[in-house]
Design a protein around this nucleic acid. Structure first.
Lengths: 219, 219
DNA sequence: TCGTAATTCATACGTTCGTTTTAATCATAG
DNA sequence: CTATGATTAAAACGAACGTATGAATTACGA
């Protein structure tokens, strides 16, 4: 007489991922999570130790793959370039394209995780920012270095800023169909999120590359 | 024997603004706010009615001016153009430049409010998003319309998306010196935030315009 | 100076939070 | 089947939350 088919741990992670995405870390209670996952309240602390550890596990489950994939793609690009600098557009696609295409992969978290990630980069909680910064550091350094080589005539500080701007644009793009309601009233496209995603990727890529290659500001 | 020099209401609003910026809405308690403001716990409910109303007042105090200023600048641009469409770069500067220059104006909230605003656009709390959407609607519609006229050859849906991307990039740019630590380790510039802001504005403007005018994606 | 309204104060209320505890139930190797 | 370790269950913990209350204090026009 058990409804449980998949593992308790996994059900908790799925529920937490969805709820953190919808209501934020502080806005989601353990009782909501365990309620949605149809597990006992104590199960979270049994399996993960604490709410903070649960949050970290929610991210690690997805970020491990993303980080490896980003490294792998950049490795391949640099191998193909054979000593030549990699094209900026290829680097941008390797970083942001890989992220966006993750949204189409349901078993890697799909849109839900992507929106959670987008939201979390501006999350107020200190421990979350610290955790993400640590989790991301190696990949960030690799991509920064690649962009420095790809754009030797652009000052490094400028590249870092523009990388930051690109992160912000991307974060917004994925974080919010809701946030988009600030800008528009009409339903932008079909409701099917896969279709929306297919058109978002080239749109965002055009924008990011336009920004990255914009004329340098004169101070 | 009173230390109080400025109004209680104002002190509460200042403390709330700073704390909401630093820890988010849900991460900030009434006791933190009244503690930092050196007022009694009950003062918030006496003067504002509730925590939600306080949050709204924190925003209204700043947004009223920002909205009017944005309208005023666009009015002036359109008057000067005398029937001709306004240049996209002028529209972008009127919208985002006005916002960024607000950060240099300490009596309008300065950097603190700007960072709060940047964070809040991705805030999970439903009532905050709803409130901001309502507060912003009229201005957003005006600027969207202006961009449609300024870029007649670009599909409207594309403009809306790019407006959204620009919002994201700007939000990040102002929300986080902290978030920037994801991208870089070195102190970017001088610590003086006014100086940092002076160089941020042209940098961000270049990026935004580069993105806005990027070649259209082909589907 | 007095009286009234506005404000500040200390305190407490009822909830909800994350976590802990102890017992019951399950799976499974010997 | 039984013993043992892993998991789930029900209940309660103390702490912190937003809010409400009623008395004390302040401000200030009459």
């Amino acid at each position: 007489m058990e409804v449980r088919t998949i593992d308790t741990r996994e059900r908790i992670l799925d529920a937490a991922e969805r709820l953190f995405m919808a209501h934020g870390y502080e806005g989601t209670s353990m009782r909501q999570i365990t309620g949605e996952a149809c597990v006992n309240l104590a199960a979270v602390n049994y399996h993960f130790g604490s709410k903070e550890s649960l949050m970290q596990e929610v991210f690690r489950r997805r970020l491990d793959w993303l980080n490896e994939e980003r490294m792998r793609v950049l490795d391949q690009l640099e191998a193909e370039a054979a000593g030549q600098p990699v094209k900026p557009s290829a680097i941008v696609d390797a970083f942001f394209g890989t992220l966006l295409r993750m949204a189409g992969d349901e078993k890697r978290g799909g849109m839900t995780f992507l929106r959670l990630l987008g939201r979390t980069l501006t999350e107020p909680s200190e421990f979350i920012r610290a955790f993400l910064a640590h989790e991301y550091k190696a990949v960030m350094d690799r991509y920064k270095e690649a962009l420095f080589l790809a754009l030797p005539e652009v000052p490094k500080a400028e590249i870092v800023w523009r990388f930051h701007f690109m992160l912000g644009a991307t974060s917004y793009a994925i974080a919010g169909t809701d946030a988009l309601r600030l800008v528009t009233d009409w339903q932008i496209e079909a409701d099917d999120s896969t279709d929306r995603l297919d058109r978002l990727v080239p749109r965002l890529m055009s924008f990011l590359l336009g920004g990255l290659r914009a004329p340098l500001p004169q101070f």
